[in-house]
Amino acid sequence: MKKPADLIRQERYNSATTEYTLAIITDEDHASKVELDNGQKAWTSKLRYDTLYRNVDKETGKVSYTIEAIPAERGGEHQLLSFIAENDRGAEFSELVKFGERLLTFDDRTGLVCEVRNHNQLVPRHILMSGSGDEKFKGFKSEWATLKNDQLIVGSHGRKRAHQWIKILDHDYKITSIDWSSRYQLMKDALQLSEQGYVIHEAAEWHPYLQEWIFFPRKVSDLPYDPARDETQSGNNILLLASEDFSHIRTLSIGKHDPERGISSFKILPGHPNECVGLKSIEIGNRTESYLFCFNLDGEVLQPDTYIGPYKCEGIEIL
């Protein structure tokens, strides 16, 4: 019997693996709009590659990770161009996921699903629509994506009702919309928030070995949503691990809480399924920063926050 895609994705490396190539994509919001030499408008995003090394202390057995940037002159940085926009905004890519042999990314402004080819070519594959897909002519605000069995699950941040749906894509890109409002509420309840509080999700993985959903909210607040306060006071370091039907949810603190930093993407490291690599981002006014870190599902930090650039990175995948 053929293994499902989520297991194949996790087993493409084994327990002896000590080196990974990471792909990281930016979401530069308003700054993504550019004018090309021929006068044509386009929207741009940066795709960068880094090498992640796994280290094991010979005396203690303690695991740690280090990151090494691949220089641009060695193919470590590429510009992606999109010519599709909504309200004059586009290429605001929020996640990266390998779906079979394809590396997919998701525009949280237009709802566009693109395949990344040859490092800098975007090939549109689908446009996801907001909510159930029937309410209005607006792109789905894709924020997280993961494989579950043979399907790709794409979700939004969950703060608003229209963003509490998920999209299920098959390999032929057939799409199904599912109302997940009850599951988003269960996660909010697990964080013991008041009715006026909120959670913003941008990072999630289905763990095929544990048969659990792992969500790492970017923002958590017990106060009503206020944009200025959200930027500086709502960063989160609490991981949520939920059973398949969300009937049981446990929480886990990961590292030190920094109210300015929140998780925008993470991935389980194939070959080491108790360990993860993730992105944190800061977005305060015009100031944006991104950091890479590693942790395990026992709550240990394996690599502290490592600065990777003065831009907002929102998607990471292991190639």
Rank of each mutant, 00 (worst) to 15 (best):
R159G: 09
T21W: 03
G285I: 04
P4K: 05
R117Q: 15
N296R: 03
I175Q: 12
I263W: 05
Y291Q: 03
L279D: 01
H201F: 09
I178V: 15
R102G: 01
V154C: 11
I249D: 05
A5S: 10
S142Q: 14
E135N: 12
H163S: 12
S265H: 11
D108F: 07
H171E: 12
A203F: 07
Y13E: 12
Y20R: 11
E231Q: 14
R74T: 08
A190G: 06
E28S: 10
S243D: 11
E244C: 10
E11N: 13
Y225I: 08
L186N: 01
F137Q: 15
Q40K: 14
Y184F: 14
G197R: 07
L239N: 04
D170R: 08
G90C: 08
G299E: 02
K160Y: 14
G271P: 06
H119K: 13
E135G: 12
Q10F: 11
I175W: 05
S132P: 11
S45G: 10
C276L: 08
E28A: 08
I24G: 04
K58M: 00
N274W: 04
K138A: 11
E68N: 14
S253N: 09
D50F: 07
S247G: 14
A162C: 00
E317S: 11
S243A: 12
Y209Q: 13
P208K: 03
F215S: 09
Y311H: 01
A162N: 13
G197K: 04
N55R: 01
S281V: 11
E115D: 13
G262D: 09
H257P: 03
I214D: 06
Y209L: 15
S130I: 15
T146V: 12
E195R: 14
G131T: 11
D230Y: 02
R261T: 10
R54L: 07
A242T: 07
K256Q: 13
L240P: 06
T288Y: 02
T17V: 10
K98P: 02
E11I: 05
F293I: 02
L302I: 01
L191Q: 05
K312V: 02
S142N: 15
F83H: 14
N274Y: 08
Y13S: 06
R54K: 13
F246Y: 11
N55A: 01
T60H: 03
L319S: 10
E244Q: 13
